[in-house]
Computed example of a mutant assay.
Amino acid sequence: MIFQLNGCSAYSPSVNILGAYFPDWLFCISGGCLASALIYLSLTKLRKGSWLSPYIVIYPLLITFLSMGFWILFFY
């Protein structure tokens, strides 16, 4: 029984902030949403918003890819 649970004790994917532990994916998703909002605002300001045309598909994918990139960059 102890052999099966031994792999879980090595690393907990959480960040300690003022005594509370938050999962690292929460910060990555927040950063992905913020970065995609900044990309949206900059493209609309430059009037190039049509470059990312099907918004319902592109922006969730952009959030996903940016979140994964932040996770690889900061937590891997």
Rank of each mutant, 00 (worst) to 15 (best):
L52I: 05
T64H: 06
L26W: 10
L62D: 06
C28D: 00
I63H: 03
I63D: 01
I29A: 08
C33F: 10
S42Q: 00
I56T: 13
L18N: 13
S67N: 04
G31L: 13
S14P: 00
W51Q: 07
Y76K: 14
Q4S: 10
W71M: 08
L18R: 13
C8F: 13
P60K: 10
S12C: 12
V15I: 15
L52Q: 01
L73Y: 11
P13N: 15
M68P: 02
L38P: 03
S36E: 05
W25Q: 03
F65L: 14
I17L: 15
S14N: 10
L43C: 08
S53V: 08
L38N: 11
T64W: 08
K45E: 08
G31E: 03
L38M: 14
Y40G: 05
G49H: 04
Y21D: 15
F27A: 03
I63K: 01
I29Q: 03
M1G: 12
F65S: 11
S42C: 14
A37S: 12
G31R: 01
Q4I: 11
I2E: 13
S67V: 02
L46V: 06
C28P: 01
D24W: 04
W51F: 12
M1V: 15
D24V: 10
Y55W: 00
P54W: 03
G19E: 03
L18V: 12
K48R: 13
F75K: 05
Q4R: 12
Y59S: 04
I63G: 00
W25P: 04
V15F: 11
A20C: 00
L61R: 05
I72T: 12
K48V: 06
A20Q: 15
G69T: 10
W25G: 04
L38T: 08
L34P: 01
L26P: 01
D24F: 05
K48Y: 08
S9Q: 14
S30T: 12
P60L: 10
S14E: 14
N16Y: 11
A35D: 02
L18M: 07
A35M: 10
D24H: 12
N16Q: 08
W25C: 09
Y21W: 08
G69P: 03
G19D: 03
L66F: 13
C8W: 11
L52V: 04
T44L: 07
L52W: 00
G19L: 04
G69F: 06
Y76S: 14
C33W: 00
Y59E: 04
N6V: 11
C33E: 09
L43T: 09
A10N: 06
L34F: 08
S42I: 08
G49T: 04
L5V: 05
I56A: 11
S30F: 13
C33M: 13
I39N: 04
W71F: 12
M68T: 14
G19P: 03
W51C: 07
P13Y: 02
G31Y: 04
S12I: 07
G19W: 03
A20L: 12
S12R: 15
L26I: 09
Y59V: 05
M68D: 07
Y40C: 07
Q4T: 14
I63E: 01
C28S: 10
K48S: 09
W71L: 06
M1Y: 11
T44M: 08
P54S: 09
Y21C: 11
L61V: 15
F65V: 15
S67M: 02
F3I: 09
P23R: 08
P13M: 10
W25T: 07
L46A: 14
S53P: 00
I58D: 06
G69K: 02
L38D: 05
Y76N: 13
